[in-house]
Amino acid sequence: MSARTRPITTTEGTKPFSFSEAGLAECKALMARYPEGRSKSALIPILHVAQAENDGWLSVNAMDAVAHVMGLRHIEVYEVASFYSMFNLHPVGTYVLDVCRTTPCMLRGSDDLIHHLEKKLGVHAGETTKDGMFTLKAVECLGSCGSGPMLQCGAGYHEDLTIEKVDSLIEQLRARNSRTNYTDR
């Protein structure tokens, strides 16, 4: 819930980060989209790229690399990254399950779904399973209210969920065992 989880504010114990060649090219292309002197506009898209290349979360190293590539002050990156809820400031599991908890989904049973997932995965919303496979997040309306309850995993929406459907989704993901990102095509 809204309990305060302070971001990780140290580089200690986290791995170094640098963009892949493709990632760097994407950053450059993104920055070139804006008018002269306005390349800061690319910050959010570039943070998405960095997060996808850093196991799904933004470490201080990753944010500092973004600042470096964009020629920004570090604090300009930190203050933006910490504002938006899709940026994870803690390590996450292979899969992040963003389950909608907002009223229209609640009317269609999202409380039960979240409860079920908490029990099934043995974690509270906001936590990651011990095996590092799943991070369960209860999030606000994802714009799929007519097909709730629903969850987002990577770029994909899983809608009209039932306990059975979500169970089989979990099994499929577990079997596949490869990271999903919001930026997946």
Binding site: P7, I75, F83
Partner: peptide, 15 residues
């Protein structure tokens, strides 16, 4: 600057 948002926003240097 200000990091986080809402009522958990805080003044910080972050690192």
């Amino acid at each position: 600057g200000v990091i986080n948002r809402g009522d958990v926003a805080e003044i910080s240097t972050y690192i």
